[in-house]
């Protein structure tokens, strides 16, 4: 195994990016578009962004995972650790665009009993926050 190849990946910051924007359809829903993967190395960066959104009192959150190919327990832990607080503020967190591999783990770990998921942002905006 050559060790040089690992160096080419760069640091954790290059392996994740989180874009925060408003959903065009609805002003009070915040979209977090994540690119890259969420594991032990990148989870702190994601958590920082995620908590900053919550700090801005935005509690209706759509997390777009279509460009995420991998989520480890560190990532899942962030979602479920904050969900109570989010719902306590009459908000919710929904996941969209999970690829089949991520979906499988999502279901395997029974997170589907806790978090809602939708195929895309449109569906999530329409159905995800209806009371």
């Amino acid at each position: 195994m050559n060790r040089l190849s690992a160096g080419n990946f760069g640091g954790p910051l290059e392996n994740i990016s989180v874009d925060i924007s408003e959903v065009p359809q609805s002003r009070d829903i915040t979209l977090l578009a994540v690119k890259g993967f969420i594991d032990t190395t990148t989870a702190p960066e994601f958590e920082r962004k995620f908590l900053s959104v919550l700090g801005d009192k935005k509690f209706k959150l759509v997390v777009d995972l279509k460009d995420v190919n991998y989520i480890s327990s560190a990532g899942w832990g962030i979602f479920i650790s904050e969900i109570k607080r989010i719902r306590g503020q009459k908000g919710d967190l929904v996941l969209v665009g999970m690829n089949p591999e991520v979906t499988e783990v999502f279901e395997l770990l029974e997170f589907n009993t806790i978090l809602k998921s939708f195929p895309d942002v449109d569906a999530a905006v329409k159905k995800g926050f209806a009371k």
Binding site: I78, I80, S81
Partner: peptide, 13 residues
């Protein structure tokens, strides 16, 4: 969910 814990899922996973 209740206690907002995020670690300890690894082994289970």
């Amino acid at each position: 969910v209740d206690i907002g814990r995020k670690g300890g899922l690894g082994i289970w996973l």
